[in-house]
Amino acid sequence: MMETFALDITESTKTLFETMIMMDLNHDVASMADNTQIKTDVIGMVSFTGKCPGVIALFCSKTFSIKVASKILMSELNDFTSDVKDAIGEIANMIAGNVKTKLIAKYGDMHLSIPIVITGEGLSITAVNNHPMVAETTLSCFSKEPWLMMPFVSNNEKFSVGLLLRESNK
């Protein structure tokens, strides 16, 4: 199942880069990562509900987010503005939308949340132990469960697209 998800994420990310971002894209092998291994500046995430509830998130640096936002907005951006944050949300949304279309064929109808963008310096995602909301919600990336991480390289910058599924659905 995880191999299928990894392929779906790769194809969706590739489609986006070939159509609206127009930057080179290479990918590496997918791996499972726990929250201690994830460090990033920007997280663009979209959660989904249905038979396979979970979260899809884009993890990247601020410099990479400015580059992709410049490309998709067709204008040269130099700072980490609100347009850059919104563009990262839309990029996460389009990847998630494409993955969703592939999953619907296999698992039935699903719904996506609006995209959420979190920014900071060297962000990590840490599970809140014993917090009942974390176990129940599909809207949070702060889970103790491992992420399926697809590493990519574009324009000499590394970034990842991760998928987190609720344990009961693995």
Binding site: I72, M74, D86
Partner: peptide, 16 residues
């Protein structure tokens, strides 16, 4: 579109 940045992206794609 509920995303202002997506409205901007669509406009620029049309212009291009």
């Amino acid at each position: 579109d509920d995303s202002a940045v997506m409205r901007k992206i669509i406009q620029r794609n049309i212009q291009q």
